[in-house]
Design a protein around this nucleic acid. Structure first.
Length: 562
DNA sequence: GCCAGAGGCGCC
DNA sequence: AAAGGGCGCCTCTGGC
C-alpha cells in the first residue's frame, strides 16, 4: 500500500511535512520537523514523498544515508503537463504553477544552473528553498492530479510522471555514486595516443607531427584545426570542398587526407576528453556528471558539463571497476525498432520484434532476401526520415511487408508537417511548431519562396522546407521518445531491483546502463536487468509480444564490454 | 573582454 | 551509399 507524504524543506535544515490521503489532500495538519533527513528516516511507512523538486531534497537525504522508495516531483510533473497541454514554453516552476492557479503574475523560470566542473557541490546549491509553502504546494499537486485525469490516457501520463520522478532520484544517486574512473589509466592512454606534452604548452607531440604532415602534403603551412584554412589549401590543390567534414574528405585522393583525418580524431580527444577534462571532472577515482532527466524534448537525458553522454569509445579504457568489483554493462539491443513494433502494433513487425535475436536479420529475411545491411538502412530510414538515396527504395519494400509500422511514423510526420502536436506512447509531447514569422524574428533564415528547390508554398504558414524538417522531427520524436519512456521505466524498475544489494547504478545513456557491483553480485545484477526490462515492457506497452533483450557483459573495464 | 553563431565531431 | 533524428561541447570568428 502506497502511503504518501508531502515534504517541503524549511530554513536551517528542517522540513514541513504532512501525510496525504488517497485523494492527495492532507489528512493531518502540517507539522514542522527540525531535521529534514531525520523526518524522512523516521517514517519508513512513507513509500512516496511528494515534493517541489527532487534536486533540492534528495542530495541531502543521500548525504545522510537515507533512502526513499518513490517520489512525486511537482516541477517535473508541471513540465510534462504543460507540454501535454500545448504550453511548452510557459514557466514550469512550482511558483509559476501556483500563480497560474491563483491568477497572479507568473514569475519567469530562474536561468538554468551551469555545473561547475568537477564540483561535488553543484547539486547541493539549493534554489531559494522555500518559495512555495507546503499548503500551496499541495494545492498545485491537487490541480496536477486533476489535469492528469483530463487527458486521453490518464494512466499513461501518471505512469510517465511517476517514472520521470523516479528518474530524478536515479540521477541524483548516480551523481553521488560516480562512474569509476582511473585517472592514471586515462593519462597513460593520452600519452599513448597524443604523445608527450611539451613543457612550454601547446599541442602534444603527436598532434604537432600530424599537423606538420598535413602542411608537408600541401607544400605550405596549414592549420588543420581551421576549416577555412583547410578548404583554401584543398582549393589550391584543385579540389573543391563545401566543408571539411570527415565524410566529405574521406573519399579524396590526396596525401593530406590521411594525416588530416588522424589529426581531427586525436584533436577531438585532446580538447574534449584530454588532460584538462581529467583535471576538471575526475576526483577521487570517480567521474560525477550532473544528469538532467528529460533534458531533451524527446525525454532523453542530457548531462550538464563533462560530456558524459559522448565519452569516446577509446577513452572508455579508463572506466575500470574497483578491485574485486565488476561493471555490469547492459545495452538494449535495437531498442528503437522494437519500440516502433510495440507502438504501431504492426503484426508482422511485432513478430520480428518478439524474438531476442538480431532484429535486422529477421527483417531482411522477410523483406530484403537476406541483405541485413539494406534492411537496417530501411528501418533506420523510416525512423529518421530518410529523404533520398537507396533508403527510399528500401523504404518501399519495408512498407509492403510492414505497412502499419511505416504508416505509424508516416502519420507522425504528416502531423508535424501540418503543425500538429505528436506524443510519445506515455504522453510526452513535442513542442509546437514555430511559425515562419517568429523564426524570421529569431534570425533563422527562411527559404527563398522563388527557389524551385524549396518546393510548393505551404498552406500552413511555414516554408515547405521547414515543414518537411518538422515532419522528420515528429517522425523521429514518436519513436525516440517512446523508447525514452520505456528506458525510464526500465531504469526505475532496475533501481528497485538493486535495493538491498551493494550494487550501484553508475551510468545511463539512452539505451545502456552500467551497474558497479561486487564480483559475486554480477549474476544477480544481470538477472535484475532482465527483470527490469520485462517489467518495463509490460508496464509501458501493456500486453505485447515485443521483447526488449539486453546484451549484458560483466567486465572489469568498460572498453571490454563490446 | 564578452557573447552568439558556425563548423565540426563525439555519443545514441 | 549517402549524409535523415536527438544532443553537448570544443575552437575560432566576428561583432560589440
Amino acid at each position: 500500500m502506497t502511503e504518501r507524504w508531502a515534504l517541503a524543506p524549511t530554513e536551517h535544515g528542517g522540513a514541513a511535512i504532512a501525510p496525504l490521503g488517497p485523494d492527495g489532500r492532507p489528512t493531518a495538519p502540517v507539522t514542522h520537523e527540525p531535521d529534514l533527513a531525520e523526518a524522512v528516516r523516521s517514517r519508513p511507512e512513507a513509500t512516496r514523498w511528494v515534493w517541489r523538486d527532487t534536486h533540492s531534497v534528495h542530495p541531502r537525504l543521500l548525504a545522510a544515508g537515507v533512502r526513499v522508495d518513490r517520489c512525486y516531483d511537482i516541477e517535473a510533473a508541471e513540465t510534462l503537463l504543460l507540454a501535454h497541454e500545448g504550453r511548452h514554453g510557459e514557466p514550469r516552476s512550482a511558483a509559476a504553477a501556483l500563480a497560474r492557479l491563483r491568477g497572479g503574475p507568473v514569475p519567469p523560470d530562474p536561468p538554468p544552473r551551469t555545473a561547475a566542473p568537477g564540483s561535488q557541490s553543484s547539486l547541493f546549491e539549493p534554489r531559494p528553498p522555500v518559495d512555495v509553502s507546503l499548503a500551496d504546494l499541495l494545492d498545485v499537486y491537487a490541480d496536477q492530479q486533476r489535469r492528469h485525469a483530463t487527458t486521453a490516457h490518464p494512466d499513461r501520463l501518471r505512469l510517465l510522471t511517476a517514472s520521470e520522478s523516479a528518474g530524478m532520484l536515479v540521477a541524483a544517486e548516480m551523481h553521488a555514486a560516480g562512474l569509476p574512473w582511473r585517472a592514471d589509466v586515462h593519462r597513460a592512454l593520452l600519452t599513448e595516443l597524443l604523445g608527450e606534452r611539451y613543457a612550454g604548452g601547446g599541442e602534444p607531440r603527436r598532434l604537432a607531427e600530424l599537423a606538420d604532415e598535413v602542411s608537408a602534403a600541401f607544400g605550405r603551412r596549414v592549420r588543420p584545426d581551421l576549416p577555412a584554412d583547410v578548404v583554401k589549401a584543398f582549393a589550391q590543390a584543385g579540389i573543391k570542398l563545401t566543408s571539411t567534414r570527415r565524410w566529405e574528405i574521406e573519399g579524396i585522393d590526396h596525401p593530406a587526407v590521411k594525416p588530416l583525418i588522424a589529426y581531427k580524431k586525436l584533436y577531438r580527444i585532446y580538447t574534449a576528453h584530454g588532460w584538462s577534462w581529467l583535471q576538471d571532472w575526475v576526483r577521487d577515482g570517480r567521474f560525477r556528471p550532473e544528469y538532467l532527466p528529460g533534458g531533451t524534448v524527446s525525454g532523453r537525458w542530457t548531462t550538464n558539463g563533462g560530456g558524459a553522454l559522448q565519452i569516446p569509445k577509446v577513452v572508455r579504457r579508463a572506466v575500470i571497476a574497483d578491485p574485486g568489483w565488476r561493471l555490469v554493462v547492459a545495452d538494449a539491443a535495437q531498442m528503437e525498432p522494437r519500440v516502433l513494433a510495440a507502438i504501431s502494433r504492426d503484426p508482422a513487425f511485432m513478430e520480428v520484434a518478439g524474438q531476442d535475436g538480431d532484429l535486422y536479420q529477421s527483417v531482411s529475411d522477410r523483406a530484403f532476401s537476406g541483405d541485413r545491411g539494406q534492411a537496417k538502412l530501411a528501418v533506420l530510414g523510416a525512423i529518421y526520415g530518410q529523404t533520398s538515396g537507396d533508403g527510399l527504395k528500401n523504404l518501399a519494400l519495408l512498407r509492403r511487408r510492414f505497412p502499419r509500422a511505416v504508416a505509424y511514423v508516416d502519420e507522425a510526420a504528416r502531423a508535424g508537417e501540418e503543425g500538429r502536436l505528436v506524443r510519445t506512447w506515455l504522453g510526452r509531447t513535442c513542442p509546437p511548431a514555430v511559425n515562419a514569422a517568429d523564426q524570421e524574428e529569431a534570425g533563422i533564415p527562411q527559404d527563398d519562396p522563388d527557389d524551385p528547390a524549396s518546393g510548393p508554398p505551404s498552406t500552413y504558414g511555414y516554408t515547405s522546407s521547414n515543414s518537411r524538417a518538422r515532419g522528420r522531427f515528429t517522425r523521429n520524436f514518436v519513436v525516440q521518445g517512446s523508447a525514452a519512456d520505456w528506458a525510464l521505466l526500465m531504469l526505475a524498475a532496475l533501481r528497485r531491483e538493486l535495493d538491498g544489494m551493494a550494487a550501484e547504478l553508475v551510468f545511463f545513456q539512452h539505451d545502456e546502463v552500467i551497474v558497479h557491483c561486487p564480483r559475486d553480485e554480477a549474476d544477480r545484477v544481470a538477472e535484475a536487468i532482465r527483470s527490469a526490462s520485462d517489467l518495463a515492457g509490460r508496464l509501458t506497452f501493456g500486453r505485447t509480444p515485443v521483447r526488449f533483450p539486453f546484451a549484458v557483459a560483466s567486465v572489469e573495464c568498460y572498453a571490454d564490454a563490446k
